[in-house]
Amino acid sequence: MRLPDLDPTDLTDAQRELRERILGGPRGDGPQHFPLATPDGALTGPFQVLLHEPSLGAPLQELGSAVRYATGLSDRVREIAILSVAAATDSAFEQWAHARVGRAAGLHDTELAALADGRFTSLDATEQAAYGFCRRLLEDTSHVDDEVYARLREDLGTTTITELVVLVGYYRTLAQLLDVFDVGVPDEQR
């Protein structure tokens, strides 16, 4: 990583508050499918980057928490969308972390491999429509014309469309942060 790990004992008040919100919020509750912190207490993945800039990191982690825990997306649809972003952006950390979350959400190894390869299909109409929409958002020509929008509104509804647009934007931002600051899969997890 291009940024130093931040020792929990050396944090500013704003960094300490952000760290506590990340570890003590919904991400820290319930089953942990990937570690949020290393054994020495440094945060993993994008959270370590966010901790370096708490004025941006705090609202960004709040958005991420809302995307993960406060939408109407099913767990499977949410993870299909996140893994679509991970594949399109070649984000090793997001692929590694959310393959574990996706498996817990009911995605099978063949589905996870198909998502990683950009060739996912589902017999579930909502899952397929959500995947197709996310892939469209991740393309260079992501424009949604009236015909496409009408089909999406019929297949997904406006709430799900909004949730997916925000999810893709959020995880694309994380993928860019992970890339710029060279954050990969934690060494002890390789």
Rank of each mutant, 00 (worst) to 15 (best):
L6I: 10
D7N: 13
D7Y: 01
D7T: 04
P8Q: 03
T12N: 06
T12R: 01
T12A: 08
D13F: 04
D13T: 11
D13E: 13
A14I: 03
R16L: 08
L18F: 02
L18K: 00
R19E: 01
E20Q: 13
R21S: 09
L23W: 02
G24V: 06
G25L: 03
R27C: 03
G30C: 05
G30E: 11
P31Y: 07
A37F: 06
P39Q: 05
G41I: 03
L43H: 03
T44R: 06
G45L: 02
G45S: 05
P46T: 02
Q48C: 01
Q48Y: 01
V49C: 04
H52Y: 02
H52C: 01
E53Q: 04
S55N: 03
G57D: 00
Q61Y: 02
Q61T: 07
S65T: 14
S65A: 13
A70S: 14
V77R: 06
A81V: 15
V85Q: 01
A87G: 00
S91A: 11
Q95T: 13
W96I: 08
H98K: 07
R103D: 06
R103I: 00
R103M: 06
G106D: 09
G106M: 07
L107E: 04
H108S: 15
D109R: 11
T110S: 14
E111W: 04
L112N: 04
L112E: 03
A114T: 07
L115S: 11
D117R: 15
G118M: 11
G118Q: 09
F120A: 06
S122A: 14
L123I: 12
A125L: 12
T126H: 09
Q128C: 04
G132C: 12
R135C: 15
D146L: 15
D146N: 15
D146T: 15
E147N: 14
V148C: 15
R151A: 15
E154F: 13
L156K: 12
T158N: 12
T160G: 02
T160W: 03
T160P: 05
I161P: 05
T162P: 01
T162S: 15
E163G: 07
V168I: 14
Y171N: 00
D179S: 10
D179M: 04
V180N: 06
G184M: 09
P186M: 10
P186F: 12
E188V: 13
R190S: 13
